[in-house]
Simulated scan of single mutants.
Amino acid sequence: MKALIIDDENKARRLLERLLQEQCPEITEIIGASDLEAGVASIKNELPDLVYLDIEMPKYSGLQILDLMGDTPVNFQIIFTTAYNEYAVEAFKLSAIDYLLKPIDIKELRTATEKAISTLKEQSINNKLEDLKKAFNQLALNKIALEIPKGVIFITHDDIVHFEADGMYTKVHLINRPSELICKPLKHFVAQLQALPIFYKPHRSYLVNLKHIKELSKKDGHHLVMSNNKTIPISK
């Protein structure tokens, strides 16, 4: 049984390889790739039976594997490795895709690997990946994905007070939890949320949730006071 590990973190690849060697004797050969493009090339050349696939990687997400595979048949089993939080985990459960939460638990690794081996020739991974995409889209109806260093968190729209531009980054101010600094510009969120009437851009550096406006003040020029007492200027 041949396994391929696709992960942009070299340390994570080495750790998973060691765990597989120690815990999964059915796997006799292990190869690695540092990004999805290299991983797909290895899939086509090496024909692995199992692919342990990280989701958050530079340039391409692991969820885009079907896009890069093209017409090449997916006749291997995928186990996603992810640092996603509980909301995203629900998407994996809904789609019946195997996944391992980082840091990887040895017992869960054995269980997922044994399941993948037993079902390798029974189900179409293509259909399961499409189901996963649908599940993520369903979650996204009322939530927004915020990419943080540890993974991705899903926040409901109502929990967002406002977005604040910080150069090429954006600070997301939230209810009852610390703000998050996201490595995407404000225009990314403006484009993503422009169809939702609850979000309004009063200033080039801010995008606010209208539900959290506490006051419209005319003192020293027009500005908004948000529910977190942050003052937001209004452009003329």
Rank of each mutant, 00 (worst) to 15 (best):
M1E: 01
M1F: 02
K2L: 08
L4N: 00
N10D: 13
K11V: 12
K11E: 10
K11F: 13
R13S: 04
L16E: 03
L16R: 04
R18C: 09
L19R: 07
L20K: 00
Q23D: 06
P25Q: 04
P25H: 04
P25D: 08
E26G: 03
I27P: 12
T28I: 11
E29Q: 13
G32C: 14
S34Q: 09
D35P: 01
E37H: 06
E37D: 10
S42F: 13
S42Y: 11
I43G: 02
K44M: 13
E46R: 05
E46I: 02
E46V: 02
L47K: 10
L53I: 03
D54F: 09
I55N: 01
Y60N: 08
G62A: 08
I65L: 07
L66E: 14
P73S: 00
N75T: 10
F76A: 00
I78Y: 08
F80D: 07
A83I: 03
A83F: 10
E86D: 14
V89M: 08
E90H: 07
L94M: 14
S95G: 11
S95N: 11
S95W: 11
L101S: 04
L101A: 06
I104D: 12
I104L: 12
E108D: 12
R110Q: 13
A112M: 09
A112S: 14
A112C: 15
A112P: 01
K115E: 12
L120K: 05
L120W: 02
E122C: 06
S124R: 02
K128L: 14
D131I: 09
K133P: 05
K133N: 15
F136L: 14
N137S: 14
Q138Y: 14
A140P: 01
A140V: 00
N142L: 07
K143G: 09
K143Y: 12
L146E: 11
P149T: 00
P149E: 02
P149L: 03
K150M: 08
G151F: 07
I153D: 12
T156N: 09
D159L: 08
D159F: 05
I160V: 15
V161F: 04
F163S: 05
F163G: 08
E164T: 09
D166V: 04
M168H: 09
Y169V: 00
T170Y: 05
H173P: 06
I175K: 15
S179K: 03
K184P: 04
P185S: 10
P185I: 10
L186P: 01
K187R: 15
A191W: 06
Q192H: 11
L193C: 03
F199T: 01
Y200A: 01
Y200W: 15
Y200T: 03
K201S: 15
H203S: 06
H203M: 12
V208N: 13
L210F: 05
K211L: 15
I213M: 10
K214P: 11
K219S: 13
D220G: 06
D220R: 00
G221S: 09
H222V: 11
L224A: 09
I232P: 01
P233M: 06
